[in-house]
Design a protein around this nucleic acid. Structure first.
Lengths: 166, 166
DNA sequence: CGTGAAACCGTCGCCCC
DNA sequence: GGGGCGACGGTTTCACG
C-alpha cells in the first residue's frame, strides 16, 4: 500500500526494471545483490503495492507510421469539477490523445497527441476536440523533433535526496 | 531496418508487448496465433530493426516521492541549429527534465519535468534553466492531476488506417 | 513456420538468521 | 520479518525438418 517505505534494494529493483523491464529475475537478483526468490517476492510486492504499474515495450512511433506529434493547450468555459471530469473522460476515449494533464494557470489542460499524418490530426481537432462540449480554446504546437524522451523518474535525484536526508 | 513492412502478426506482437512488456514468449505466441520459436524470432527482429526500442517498468512517480510535475515552455534567443542543439544537449544532462521536444510556433521547446517538491524544481528553474546560455523566456505550468497518461501509440488507429488503405 | 530437446528460469516449500 | 537452498514445472532457445 501507499506510503510503505522502500529500502535501498527495492529502489535498485525499481531503477533496474525501469531501465530494462524484460530483465530476468535471476539477472535482476544478481544486480541488486540478493538471491532470486526474495528478489521475486520483492518485485511482486512492488507490483501489488502500486509502485510498479505495469511493463510496456517502448515502440518507435515514427517508424510505425505516426509521423505527427502535437501538444494541444485546451481552455474550457467552465472549470466546475463536473465539467473538468467530463472533459477528462472524453480524452480517455480519444485514441489520438495519449496524455491529458490538468494544469494551473491560464490554460486548463495540456494534451499530447499522435497521428499518422496532419490531416488525421486536423480532422480530430476540428471534428472532435473543437466541437466538444465546454471547450473554449485550443492552441496546438507541432513537435519538430524530440531531443529527449525518457519514461519514468530520475533515480539519481531520489538517491541523492535520500542520502542528504539520512 | 527502417521501412521494413510489418505484417498483421508483427503489429499484433507490438500491440501486445506495448500493453504488457513482461508477457512470456509462449503467452505472446499463443495470442498472436503462432508457435513460440518463430514468435521469438519476430520479437528479436523487431528489436533489432528499431521498432522496439526497449522495455520499461512503469513506476508510480508520485508514490516514489516525485510530487511535482511541470511543463516548461522555453523560448531561445537564437534558433540557429548549433544553438538549438546546444540547448538540447543541456536538457539531456538535466535529470529533472524527462522530455524535451522542439516545437513550431512562438515557443521553441516544451519540457516535461519532475521533481520531489516545489523547492527542488524552483532551484532547478532559477539556477539551471533560466541561467542557461541562450534561454530567453520560460513559462512553467504545474500539473494538477493526470487524467490520462498512456505510453506508446494507438494500435486501433493504425489497424483502421491499414484496412482502409488495403 | 513447426517440432523436439536441452538449458535456463520462475516459483514454491522449507529451513535459517 | 527477510534471505538462502533445493526441486519441480514451465519457458527460452537451440538445431533441424
Amino acid at each position: 500500500m501507499a506510503g510503505t517505505r522502500l529500502d535501498p534494494i527495492d529502489r535498485k529493483i525499481l531503477a533496474e526494471l525501469q531501465a530494462d523491464g524484460r530483465m530476468t529475475n535471476v539477472e535482476l537478483a544478481k544486480r541488486v545483490g540478493i538471491s532470486a526468490p526474495p528478489c521475486l517476492r520483492r518485485v511482486r510486492t512492488l507490483e501489488e503495492s502500486g509502485y510498479i504499474r505495469g511493463y510496456h515495450a517502448d515502440v518507435d512511433s515514427r517508424e510505425l507510421g505516426f509521423e505527427v506529434q502535437v501538444f494541444a493547450m485546451v481552455g474550457l468555459n467552465s472549470q466546475a469539477e463536473a465539467d473538468l471530469s467530463a472533459f477528462e473522460e472524453l480524452c480517455r476515449c480519444w485514441s489520438l490523445v495519449r496524455e491529458c494533464h490538468m494544469l494551473n494557470g491560464e490554460v486548463d489542460f495540456i494534451l499530447k497527441c499522435v497521428a499518422p499524418d496532419l490531416s488525421t490530426f486536423q480532422s480530430f481537432l476540428t471534428e472532435d476536440l473543437l466541437k466538444a462540449e465546454n471547450v473554449a480554446s485550443v492552441k496546438t504546437s507541432l513537435v519538430i523533433r524530440d531531443a529527449k524522451d525518457e519514461p519514468g523518474v530520475p533515480f539519481d535525484v531520489l538517491e541523492e535526496r535520500i542520502s542528504r536526508n539520512a
